[in-house]
Design a binder for these strands. Structure first.
Lengths: 120, 120
DNA sequence: TTACTATATAACGATATAGTAGAATACTGT
DNA sequence: ACAGTATTCTACTATATCGTTATATAGTAA
Protein backbone atom coordinates (compact mmCIF):
# COMPACT_ATOMS: atom_id res chain seq x y z
CA UNK A 1 0.00 0.00 0.00
CA UNK A 2 2.73 2.38 0.95
CA UNK A 3 4.88 0.68 -1.65
CA UNK A 4 2.24 1.20 -4.32
CA UNK A 5 1.97 4.85 -3.43
CA UNK A 6 5.71 5.22 -3.75
CA UNK A 7 5.67 3.51 -7.10
CA UNK A 8 3.03 5.89 -8.34
CA UNK A 9 4.94 8.85 -7.06
CA UNK A 10 8.05 7.59 -8.79
CA UNK A 11 6.13 7.18 -12.02
CA UNK A 12 4.71 10.66 -11.74
CA UNK A 13 8.16 12.02 -11.21
CA UNK A 14 9.47 10.28 -14.31
CA UNK A 15 6.60 11.64 -16.35
CA UNK A 16 7.15 15.11 -14.95
CA UNK A 17 10.83 14.89 -15.85
CA UNK A 18 9.87 13.99 -19.38
CA UNK A 19 7.71 17.07 -19.64
CA UNK A 20 10.40 19.20 -18.06
CA UNK A 21 12.69 18.32 -20.95
CA UNK A 22 10.21 19.99 -23.29
CA UNK A 23 9.45 22.96 -21.08
CA UNK A 24 12.33 25.11 -22.36
CA UNK A 25 11.94 27.11 -25.58
CA UNK A 26 15.58 26.70 -26.54
CA UNK A 27 15.39 22.92 -26.29
CA UNK A 28 12.17 22.87 -28.30
CA UNK A 29 13.83 25.05 -30.91
CA UNK A 30 16.78 22.70 -31.14
CA UNK A 31 14.53 19.67 -31.47
CA UNK A 32 12.36 21.28 -34.14
CA UNK A 33 15.39 22.53 -36.01
CA UNK A 34 16.75 19.01 -35.99
CA UNK A 35 13.51 17.53 -37.27
CA UNK A 36 14.41 14.23 -38.86
CA UNK A 37 17.83 15.34 -40.05
CA UNK A 38 21.22 14.87 -38.52
CA UNK A 39 22.98 18.12 -37.63
CA UNK A 40 26.17 19.03 -35.84
CA UNK A 41 26.51 21.55 -33.06
CA UNK A 42 27.78 24.40 -35.22
CA UNK A 43 24.86 24.04 -37.60
CA UNK A 44 22.45 24.08 -34.69
CA UNK A 45 24.15 27.15 -33.25
CA UNK A 46 23.79 28.94 -36.58
CA UNK A 47 20.22 27.80 -37.10
CA UNK A 48 18.94 28.64 -33.64
CA UNK A 49 20.99 31.78 -33.00
CA UNK A 50 21.74 30.55 -29.49
CA UNK A 51 25.08 30.59 -27.73
CA UNK A 52 27.37 27.64 -28.50
CA UNK A 53 27.88 26.64 -24.89
CA UNK A 54 24.17 26.87 -24.33
CA UNK A 55 23.33 24.69 -27.31
CA UNK A 56 25.94 22.19 -26.21
CA UNK A 57 24.52 22.12 -22.72
CA UNK A 58 20.98 21.55 -23.93
CA UNK A 59 22.14 18.83 -26.31
CA UNK A 60 23.86 17.16 -23.38
CA UNK A 61 20.64 17.24 -21.38
CA UNK A 62 18.66 15.82 -24.29
CA UNK A 63 21.29 13.17 -24.85
CA UNK A 64 21.31 12.09 -21.22
CA UNK A 65 17.54 11.77 -21.39
CA UNK A 66 17.78 9.63 -24.51
CA UNK A 67 15.87 12.09 -26.66
CA UNK A 68 18.72 12.49 -29.15
CA UNK A 69 21.57 10.31 -30.34
CA UNK A 70 25.15 11.49 -30.79
CA UNK A 71 27.56 10.45 -33.52
CA UNK A 72 31.09 11.73 -33.51
CA UNK A 73 32.65 12.35 -36.91
CA UNK A 74 36.12 13.83 -36.72
CA UNK A 75 35.91 17.24 -35.14
CA UNK A 76 32.18 17.56 -35.29
CA UNK A 77 29.45 15.78 -33.36
CA UNK A 78 26.21 14.97 -35.12
CA UNK A 79 22.93 14.83 -33.29
CA UNK A 80 19.62 13.32 -34.30
CA UNK A 81 16.24 13.01 -32.64
CA UNK A 82 15.85 9.48 -31.31
CA UNK A 83 12.44 9.78 -29.70
CA UNK A 84 9.73 10.55 -32.23
CA UNK A 85 7.08 10.85 -29.53
CA UNK A 86 8.52 14.31 -28.89
CA UNK A 87 6.88 15.59 -32.04
CA UNK A 88 3.68 13.79 -31.24
CA UNK A 89 3.55 15.59 -27.90
CA UNK A 90 4.18 18.96 -29.53
CA UNK A 91 1.46 18.28 -32.08
CA UNK A 92 -1.07 17.61 -29.35
CA UNK A 93 -0.15 20.83 -27.60
CA UNK A 94 -0.25 22.81 -30.84
CA UNK A 95 -3.72 21.52 -31.69
CA UNK A 96 -4.92 22.38 -28.24
CA UNK A 97 -3.48 25.92 -28.48
CA UNK A 98 -4.98 26.35 -31.91
CA UNK A 99 -8.51 25.39 -30.88
CA UNK A 100 -8.07 27.54 -27.82
CA UNK A 101 -7.27 30.55 -29.97
CA UNK A 102 -10.00 29.71 -32.45
CA UNK A 103 -12.51 29.69 -29.63
CA UNK A 104 -11.22 32.99 -28.32
CA UNK A 105 -11.42 34.50 -31.78
CA UNK A 106 -15.00 33.30 -32.14
CA UNK A 107 -15.90 34.84 -28.80
CA UNK A 108 -14.22 38.08 -29.81
CA UNK A 109 -16.11 38.24 -33.10
CA UNK A 110 -19.35 37.56 -31.28
CA UNK A 111 -18.54 40.31 -28.82
CA UNK A 112 -17.74 42.76 -31.59
CA UNK A 113 -20.98 41.93 -33.34
CA UNK A 114 -22.94 42.36 -30.14
CA UNK A 115 -21.41 45.80 -29.73
CA UNK A 116 -21.96 46.91 -33.31
CA UNK A 117 -24.06 44.57 -35.47
CA UNK A 118 -23.70 46.86 -38.53
CA UNK A 119 -19.92 46.62 -38.70
CA UNK A 120 -18.34 43.78 -40.62
CA UNK B 1 11.27 37.02 -42.20
CA UNK B 2 12.35 38.39 -38.89
CA UNK B 3 8.67 38.66 -38.04
CA UNK B 4 8.13 35.02 -38.86
CA UNK B 5 11.05 34.04 -36.68
CA UNK B 6 9.62 36.04 -33.80
CA UNK B 7 6.28 34.39 -34.29
CA UNK B 8 7.86 31.01 -34.17
CA UNK B 9 9.75 31.89 -31.04
CA UNK B 10 6.53 33.06 -29.44
CA UNK B 11 4.83 29.84 -30.44
CA UNK B 12 7.69 27.79 -29.03
CA UNK B 13 7.44 29.68 -25.79
CA UNK B 14 3.73 29.01 -25.53
CA UNK B 15 4.29 25.33 -26.17
CA UNK B 16 7.09 25.26 -23.62
CA UNK B 17 4.83 26.91 -21.06
CA UNK B 18 2.22 24.24 -21.67
CA UNK B 19 4.78 21.53 -20.98
CA UNK B 20 6.04 23.40 -17.94
CA UNK B 21 2.58 23.09 -16.41
CA UNK B 22 2.98 19.33 -16.51
CA UNK B 23 6.58 19.23 -15.38
CA UNK B 24 5.80 19.18 -11.66
CA UNK B 25 4.93 15.90 -9.93
CA UNK B 26 2.52 17.54 -7.51
CA UNK B 27 0.52 19.11 -10.32
CA UNK B 28 0.42 15.83 -12.20
CA UNK B 29 -0.74 14.09 -9.07
CA UNK B 30 -3.53 16.62 -8.61
CA UNK B 31 -4.64 16.25 -12.21
CA UNK B 32 -4.62 12.47 -12.10
CA UNK B 33 -6.41 12.45 -8.78
CA UNK B 34 -9.06 14.68 -10.30
CA UNK B 35 -9.50 12.46 -13.31
CA UNK B 36 -12.95 13.20 -14.70
CA UNK B 37 -14.50 13.95 -11.33
CA UNK B 38 -15.11 17.22 -9.59
CA UNK B 39 -13.27 17.58 -6.27
CA UNK B 40 -12.80 20.34 -3.76
CA UNK B 41 -9.51 21.46 -2.26
CA UNK B 42 -9.84 19.54 1.00
CA UNK B 43 -10.51 16.31 -0.85
CA UNK B 44 -7.49 16.89 -3.05
CA UNK B 45 -5.36 17.65 -0.01
CA UNK B 46 -6.46 14.37 1.60
CA UNK B 47 -5.99 12.39 -1.60
CA UNK B 48 -2.58 13.74 -2.52
CA UNK B 49 -1.10 14.15 0.93
CA UNK B 50 0.28 17.53 -0.04
CA UNK B 51 0.12 20.71 2.00
CA UNK B 52 -3.16 22.62 1.67
CA UNK B 53 -1.59 25.93 0.67
CA UNK B 54 0.54 24.10 -1.83
CA UNK B 55 -2.42 22.34 -3.40
CA UNK B 56 -4.27 25.63 -3.56
CA UNK B 57 -1.32 27.32 -5.22
CA UNK B 58 -1.00 24.62 -7.85
CA UNK B 59 -4.74 24.69 -8.49
CA UNK B 60 -4.45 28.44 -9.01
CA UNK B 61 -1.69 27.92 -11.55
CA UNK B 62 -3.70 25.27 -13.38
CA UNK B 63 -6.76 27.50 -13.30
CA UNK B 64 -4.90 30.49 -14.71
CA UNK B 65 -3.65 28.27 -17.50
CA UNK B 66 -7.16 27.07 -18.26
CA UNK B 67 -6.39 23.46 -17.46
CA UNK B 68 -9.05 23.23 -14.74
CA UNK B 69 -12.34 24.97 -14.04
CA UNK B 70 -13.41 26.29 -10.66
CA UNK B 71 -16.91 26.23 -9.19
CA UNK B 72 -17.59 27.78 -5.86
CA UNK B 73 -20.20 26.07 -3.71
CA UNK B 74 -20.64 27.63 -0.31
CA UNK B 75 -17.45 27.25 1.64
CA UNK B 76 -15.78 24.83 -0.71
CA UNK B 77 -14.37 25.30 -4.18
CA UNK B 78 -14.75 22.49 -6.67
CA UNK B 79 -12.24 21.89 -9.40
CA UNK B 80 -12.50 19.85 -12.55
CA UNK B 81 -10.13 19.13 -15.43
CA UNK B 82 -11.16 21.24 -18.41
CA UNK B 83 -8.45 20.25 -20.86
CA UNK B 84 -8.63 16.57 -21.74
CA UNK B 85 -5.51 16.75 -23.87
CA UNK B 86 -3.61 16.66 -20.59
CA UNK B 87 -4.35 12.97 -20.23
CA UNK B 88 -3.55 12.36 -23.87
CA UNK B 89 -0.12 13.89 -23.32
CA UNK B 90 0.50 11.76 -20.24
CA UNK B 91 -0.55 8.64 -22.11
CA UNK B 92 1.96 9.32 -24.83
CA UNK B 93 4.72 9.79 -22.29
CA UNK B 94 3.70 6.68 -20.38
CA UNK B 95 3.75 4.53 -23.50
CA UNK B 96 7.14 5.89 -24.37
CA UNK B 97 8.50 5.15 -20.89
CA UNK B 98 6.98 1.69 -20.98
CA UNK B 99 8.56 0.70 -24.30
CA UNK B 100 11.79 2.21 -23.09
CA UNK B 101 11.78 -0.01 -20.03
CA UNK B 102 10.65 -3.03 -22.04
CA UNK B 103 13.59 -2.57 -24.37
CA UNK B 104 15.96 -2.23 -21.47
CA UNK B 105 14.56 -5.37 -19.88
CA UNK B 106 14.99 -7.25 -23.14
CA UNK B 107 18.58 -6.08 -23.41
CA UNK B 108 19.20 -7.11 -19.85
CA UNK B 109 17.74 -10.58 -20.39
CA UNK B 110 19.84 -10.97 -23.52
CA UNK B 111 22.91 -9.91 -21.61
CA UNK B 112 22.19 -12.37 -18.82
CA UNK B 113 21.71 -15.16 -21.33
CA UNK B 114 24.93 -14.29 -23.08
CA UNK B 115 26.73 -14.53 -19.78
CA UNK B 116 25.14 -17.80 -18.69
CA UNK B 117 23.02 -19.59 -21.35
CA UNK B 118 22.16 -22.44 -18.94
CA UNK B 119 20.42 -20.22 -16.41
CA UNK B 120 16.73 -19.49 -16.87
C1' DT C 1 55.11 19.99 -31.90
C1' DT C 2 52.29 24.03 -32.95
C1' DA C 3 48.24 26.28 -34.50
C1' DC C 4 43.56 25.89 -35.36
C1' DT C 5 38.67 24.28 -35.01
C1' DA C 6 34.60 22.02 -32.87
C1' DT C 7 32.64 20.71 -28.81
C1' DA C 8 32.19 20.08 -23.89
C1' DT C 9 32.72 21.61 -19.21
C1' DA C 10 33.21 24.78 -15.11
C1' DA C 11 31.99 28.57 -12.64
C1' DC C 12 29.08 32.36 -11.95
C1' DG C 13 25.08 35.66 -11.66
C1' DA C 14 20.32 36.15 -12.37
C1' DT C 15 15.88 34.43 -12.32
C1' DA C 16 12.13 31.34 -11.40
C1' DT C 17 9.52 28.49 -8.61
C1' DA C 18 8.37 24.79 -5.09
C1' DG C 19 7.04 24.37 -0.51
C1' DT C 20 5.67 26.45 3.94
C1' DA C 21 3.87 29.30 7.84
C1' DG C 22 0.87 32.69 8.90
C1' DA C 23 -2.44 36.41 7.71
C1' DA C 24 -6.45 37.62 5.18
C1' DT C 25 -10.83 36.62 2.93
C1' DA C 26 -15.29 34.38 2.20
C1' DC C 27 -18.94 31.73 3.65
C1' DT C 28 -22.02 29.19 7.25
C1' DG C 29 -24.51 28.51 11.42
C1' DT C 30 -25.79 30.09 15.96
C1' DA D 1 -22.38 40.01 15.50
C1' DC D 2 -19.48 35.96 16.60
C1' DA D 3 -17.17 31.61 16.02
C1' DG D 4 -15.68 28.26 13.04
C1' DT D 5 -14.24 26.40 8.53
C1' DA D 6 -12.47 26.39 3.64
C1' DT D 7 -9.71 28.66 0.67
C1' DT D 8 -6.60 32.06 -1.02
C1' DC D 9 -2.91 35.36 -0.48
C1' DT D 10 1.55 37.10 1.27
C1' DA D 11 6.03 36.90 2.32
C1' DC D 12 10.04 33.94 2.89
C1' DT D 13 13.66 30.23 2.23
C1' DA D 14 15.71 26.86 -0.44
C1' DT D 15 16.69 24.92 -4.68
C1' DA D 16 17.11 24.49 -9.55
C1' DT D 17 18.41 26.01 -13.92
C1' DC D 18 19.07 29.23 -17.84
C1' DG D 19 22.39 31.87 -20.27
C1' DT D 20 27.15 33.49 -20.45
C1' DT D 21 32.26 33.82 -20.16
C1' DA D 22 36.26 31.53 -19.85
C1' DT D 23 38.66 27.32 -20.00
C1' DA D 24 39.56 22.48 -21.17
C1' DT D 25 39.48 18.63 -24.30
C1' DA D 26 39.74 16.26 -28.68
C1' DG D 27 40.66 16.04 -33.38
C1' DT D 28 43.01 17.99 -37.77
C1' DA D 29 46.53 19.92 -40.54
C1' DA D 30 50.89 22.13 -41.27
Amino acid sequence: MKKRKDLNDAALEMIANRFKLLSEPTRLKILHTLGDREMNVSELVAATGANQANVSKHLGILYDAGVVTRRKDGLTVNYRVADETIFELCDVVCSRLKTHFDLRRLSLNQLLQDIDPAAE
